[in-house]
Design a protein around this nucleic acid. Sequence first.
DNA 1: ATATATAGGTACCCCATGGATAGTGAAGAT
DNA 2: ATCTTCACTATCCATGGGGTACCTATATAT
Lengths: 132, 132
Amino acid sequence: MDSEDNSSFGYDAFRRTCPSHTVLEMLASKWVYLVVCALRKGRLRNGELARKLEGITPKMLTQTLRVLERDGLVRREVFPVIPPRVEYELTELGQNLAGLLTQIRSWAEQHAPDIKDARARATAANEGEWAA
Amino acid sequence: MDSEDNSSFGYDAFRRTCPSHTVLEMLASKWVYLVVCALRKGRLRNGELARKLEGITPKMLTQTLRVLERDGLVRREVFPVIPPRVEYELTELGQNLAGLLTQIRSWAEQHAPDIKDARARATAANEGEWAA
DNA sequence: ATATATAGGTACCCCATGGATAGTGAAGAT
DNA sequence: ATCTTCACTATCCATGGGGTACCTATATAT
């Protein structure tokens, strides 16, 4: 009587050892979000992704793409030409996820002002605190 | 000509300086996911959360709750009794987000097997690699 | 012939963060 | 008097996120 609302298949992300927990850990990354969103509308090259994701370093980009490839969300295609050409695209599983992540991203964009306000209020409250 | 698909309000999570980017960073945390999901069905005490979220340490629980409170997603209510009693519940904004995060969690639970398989295949492929 | 640019990625280092463990305070039960 | 509960804090340590520099192999420019 405490598995409650887990979704139909016996998987429960609240349990540390559950596979879905590790999936959640993998998804819990800023760059995973953004890379998946960026690939949503079609395949992109490494350099194109690097330019689109402002502030990502080559290392983090590669690392993130490797994880996504390993987990079957992204497909990597190498063209044996010089200079090298590598393209990345979402798999079907990745497309599926991209829909949800895009919703999160939209939520973040829509509610950014609310959260900014909340933070400002929190800061103000804390600064008032030393007076008490 | 490259803001493309950002959602209607001029916010763009791909830009490092955009408020929505910092919101995404805040959401990109395993414990934020799980705490918000856990609070979805009603207010809970610190200890109840700790028991529900297997593996969370008191420090991470408090830290996560403080962030969520600061950002206006969670409300904290203290009852001045001994021993202390503190309850947490989602704000309206938090409820709103919880719907999306629960979808992600469901997705993780549904597709955990797919991803487990993909990881197994990736590992097998890498182990075959030394033979080539 | 040498130098430079390109594209994608690796190697190395550093520090911030996640995470574990122990401690705090106040009242009531034993 | 000591122990227990509850919600935290404080402190320490290790992991890994993140930055920078470098590498490879050719085509082009000089």
